[in-house]
């Protein structure tokens, strides 16, 4: 029974050798082999017919264009909008800090210190750039 199953599988796959063909014909008869083949050919024909109709709707220029669909932008922003929002917020906060320091120090008569020369600020900037880089890489890299 196992052998018969194996041979019918090979018959359906189209990989039956001549020797196996004779072996299978002894097991199930030539008439059954022909019916299996005929039924499978007809199923093949019908499935190809229903699956491939009205399929020619892709335009080549759209297919190979990186801007092929607006969905890619929608997807990008829906996926990364929170991160982008947080980054923009941090940038805004960071932009305000030196102004605040500048104003408060000017009022107290102390020499103004440029906050953007601080290693802390440079570190924050690097982290933001790193986050943006990772986000861009995740979105655009090919994960095949």
């Amino acid at each position: 029974m196992n052998r018969e199953r194996e041979l019918i599988d090979a018959l359906l796959d189209g990989s039956l050798t001549q020797e196996q063909w004779y072996e299978l014909s002894v097991l199930i008869g030539m008439d059954t082999i022909q019916r299996i083949q005929k039924g499978d050919r007809r199923l093949h024909k019908y499935l190809a017919s229903v699956s491939l109709e009205s399929g020619d709707i892709l335009s080549l220029s759209r297919a190979i264009s990186p801007f092929r669909s607006r969905n890619i932008f929608v997807d990008f922003f829906s996926r990364w909008s929170l991160l982008i929002g947080v980054i923009v917020f941090f940038c805004a906060v960071l932009a305000i800090i030196p102004k605040v320091i500048d104003i408060s120090l000017a009022q107290s008569g102390v020499i103004v210190y440029n906050a953007f020369e601080s290693p802390f600020q440079v570190g924050i900037g690097s982290v933001i750039l790193l986050c943006l880089g990772i986000a861009a890489w995740l979105e655009w890299s090919d994960r095949i």
Binding site: R5, I8, L12, R35, I36, K38, G39, D40, R42, Y46
Partner: peptide, 19 residues
Amino acid sequence: SPVWIEPEIFDTIDQATIE
């Protein structure tokens, strides 16, 4: 066990219905 479809079955209904 392998399953196969009898060829006669396709002759009993019209082509459009089978599709």
